[in-house]
Structures are given as structure tokens and as C-alpha cells.
Design a protein around this nucleic acid. Structure first.
Lengths: 227, 227
DNA sequence: TTAGTATGTGTATATAAGACACTAACATAA
DNA sequence: TTATGTTAGTGTCTTATATACACATACTAA
């Protein structure tokens, strides 16, 4: 708070602060988001995993905590998205929520439905159910940001395992941008960006020429203008 | 809030929610930001104008309210920037602040120091004083966003008056990107983007050929890739 | 040995970016 | 009235980037 004269109003403010996570992954060439099924209140509705901020943690730490709670993962791509504050977004209380978005690699993660929820599932973003609160709106926003991120930064790396083929990488782009890309032009660009290095391994999967496996030479966030 | 099971924790949360505005303008080829001088607490320090959110307003409305309070302006470019939540960012209370950034046209606005502050001033962003709280950090973030915005969207329009010359437009870009641009290439791009229309007026200012005045054919926010 | 399938590669064309210098139209002063 | 100073306004050539497009390769399975 930057304005000391309003400190007196502190006592009056009655707003809660929460975080909601948009956790994305790409699987079989399709983009998925992690949803939970609510128990009490709005029971049975699907929603983004989230929760209140603790008094001593940053919002980012809260997002991280919830991500770990639901997926067991830490050290992932996690980025603040936007803070949603419509007064009526939560019918039970005035709750302002900062949305985060996370990218996790092709998730063979077993989702252990925490006791807090009735269910936890990966949903294809193309056919989402009606979600609780303003969560459909949040997801829409997150999808746009994801599209941008993957086009202009190296964020796609976070959606892939340690080693992967160029076709797998291309499928990640196609799933998120929702369109086919030309194989040769795609590889030219990836090559020019120069963040990949060839490994000596190949991946043989099906009755055809085996594919070379690549890995990232660095995982630092970078702005790269890929597509 | 998306998680009903934590509703019980509501009573425990003790966090205040504020907004801080980064209000930019360009004047005489230089980029300025609006700062206020604080009265009580951290007295004498300069800071971003801000304040607590009201229980019934969105954060955006709060930002709008504060912008109007300080500049008298409404209907300006105003956009959410980021939510800052370091637990120790305010030494007096746990306050989480959502920063907004605003662009206003060459400000012949008279700044009426509201009774809440000791002073209100435009500061050149190149030489800012030490600011209260984490506001230097916020401003740094805002500057980056501004640079991006002006390069990839038509946001620059918001920094100019109704009618303006191409040289004035170029100066806005140069001030924000902090580098000289080539006049002919700049005009070629602006022309290609196609958002300007010529007026029949000219502007004569000094002993030289008068400049044509232009105006925007639309002020809707657009992504345009200008520079 | 053949058929089927995904991998891997190059070139030519179109579009965009960047570097660069002179004439035009005004005010002012001699 | 003429000369000087000042910013406005314009075009071309070169280089880099983007896009469109087709065939040989290396494996499995029948």
C-alpha cells in the first residue's frame, strides 16, 4: 500500500485473496488443463485448483504450493497471469483471485485426488465443462497468454520431457496454436533459434525411420520469437 | 476463491489489497512518470499514487478512481500490470498491491496536489529518486511493459493529443525505446500499419516547413507490430 | 522382398527490414 | 528581395526473413 492516509481504512476492508492455477500440459497432440471437482458449495462443479493466500507467503509461493499439492511437481514453469476482481465472481464472499499459469511436461503424473476434492482430472481445453466462479473466463485468458508465450519465448520447453524429438516439439506448437505447421520451415526456425542440441540417441516408435532425440542447451526463460 | 474447503480459513487471513498506478506521459521528447510525496509514515518519500481497494469495486475501478483523483482524467489507457505480494513490501502491514499502468497525452494537465499528499510531480523516468515500498521495482517492471506495448500495439496513440505530427509520434517512440529511429523507415512502418489518417491541417512551429497533422482512424486497442 | 509409415532435408520466391541523402517550405535577418 | 537556417517530407537498393513446396531415408510388418 502506498498511501499512508488510507491506513485508517484498513479496518474496513473485507476482501479475501486467493490464487487459482491454470495448469497446462500437452498429451497426444492435444492441450489439456487440470481441473478439480468441488466437494462442498457449488458441489459437483469443476473448477481450477486454488486456495487462499497465507499471511506470510507471496502469491507465487501459494501458487507453487497448490501446484505441488495437486501434481506433486515443483520447479516448473509458473507465471503470474492476471488478477481477477469482479465483486460478484464468488457468490459467497468478496474474493479477489490472482491467476497463475503453469506448464508441465507430458503428464504421466498420477493425479492423487486430494481429500479436499471429489476428483482431479485433465480436461482437453477444446471441450471444457461449465466451470465454477469466473473460471471459464480465466481459462480463456490463460489460453491466449499461452499462445503468445509459446510463439515468442522458449516456454514450450516446459511442456516436454528431458529428451524429445522434433516432431514431438512441433506437435506441442500445433496443439497450442491450433493449426498445422510446415515441417521444414518449423525445423529451420528451431534450428536458427539455436537452443537445442542433438543427443546421440534416437527414438524408435512404430514401423518407420527412427527420430533423433534432442535436449535443451539451457532452460532459462528467454524471449526468442519462434513462430 | 475456488476452493470451498478453505472458506473456513477466511477469518484468519489478514491481508490488505491496494492498487498503485504507474502513470506515464511523454513531454519534450522525454518520458515522465507521476509521483506523489507522502505526508505521514515514510514522510517526505516519493511514491506511486495508490490506495486501498473498496469492498465493492474492482481493482480496475480503483485504479481509475485514483487516476482521476490525481490527474482529473478519465477514459485513458489503463491496464493491469502485475500483482506484487512480497510480505515485507510494506513495513506497516501486509499489503498486496496490484499495479496498473496508464498512458496519458502530453500533459498540460495541472496537477492539483490533493490534500492527501505533500506534492505531486512529473519525474523523468531516467532519474527517479528512491521510492517508498517496492515502487522502484514496480516502475522498472512498468517501463519494460511500456516498451513492449509501444512496439507491438497501437498504445502510443494514448500518449498523443487528438492531432499530431509524424515527428511528434516518432519522438514518443524514441523517448520510450530510448534510441534514435530512422525517419524514413519509421514513416514507412507507420504507413503500412494504416491506422493514421491525414487531416487537412498543418502545424507551423518555428522557421521551417510546416508539418501535416494526423489523427487516428480508430483508438481501439490493437496488436500491430510497429517497431 | 515389398508395402507402409514417419523422419529428414533444400531451393526458389515473396515479403520485410535496414541503410542511406537530397529537395521542399517555411521564418528570419541581412 | 535574397540568403540562411531549420525541420518536413520522400525513394531505392541491399540484405534478411518468411513461405511454399516434394522426394529420398530408415525402419517394421506382412
Amino acid at each position: 500500500m502506498s498511501n499512508p492516509t488510507v491506513q485508517a481504512e484498513h479496518a474496513k476492508q473485507n476482501i479475501k485473496l486467493a490464487v487459482d492455477n491454470c495448469i497446462f500440459t500437452v498429451k497426444d497432440g492435444k492441450l489439456f488443463i487440470l481441473l478439480i471437482k468441488m466437494k462442498s458449495k457449488l458441489q459437483g462443479m469443476w473448477a481450477l485448483p486454488g486456495g487462499l493466500i497465507k499471511d506470510t507467503e507471496t502469491i507465487g509461493a501459494a501458487a507453487q504450493r497448490i501446484l505441488k499439492q495437486e501434481t506433486g511437481l515443483s520447479d516448473n514453469y509458473l507465471e503470474q497471469l492476471y488478477t481477477f476482481s469482479q465483486p460478484n465472481r464468488d457468490p459467497f464472499a468478496r474474493v479477489i483471485s490472482t491467476a497463475y499459469f503453469a506448464l508441465i511436461p507430458d503428464a504421466n503424473i498420477e493425479l492423487k485426488p486430494s481429500p479436499k476434492y471429489d476428483d482431479v482430472r485433465w480436461y482437453p481445453v477444446k471441450k471444457l465443462p461449465e466451470l465454477a466462479y469466473d473460471h471459464n473466463h480465466i481459462v480463456k485468458y490463460a489460453k491466449q497468454r499461452l499462445e503468445w508465450k509459446i510463439s515468442y519465448t522458449n516456454a514450450a520447453w516446459s511442456l516436454l520431457p528431458e529428451k524429445f524429438t522434433l516432431t514431438e516439439l512441433q506437435k506441442v506448437y500445433e496443439a497450442i496454436l491450433n493449426k498445422k505447421l510446415d515441417k521444414r520451415n518449423f525445423r529451420k526456425k528451431i534450428d536458427k533459434v539455436g537452443l537445442l542440441k542433438e543427443t546421440k540417441q534416437t527414438k524408435l516408435e512404430g514401423a518407420h525411420r527412427p527420430a533423433k532425440l534432442y535436449e535443451f542447451s539451457s532452460k532459462k526463460k528467454k524471449i526468442v520469437e519462434i513462430i
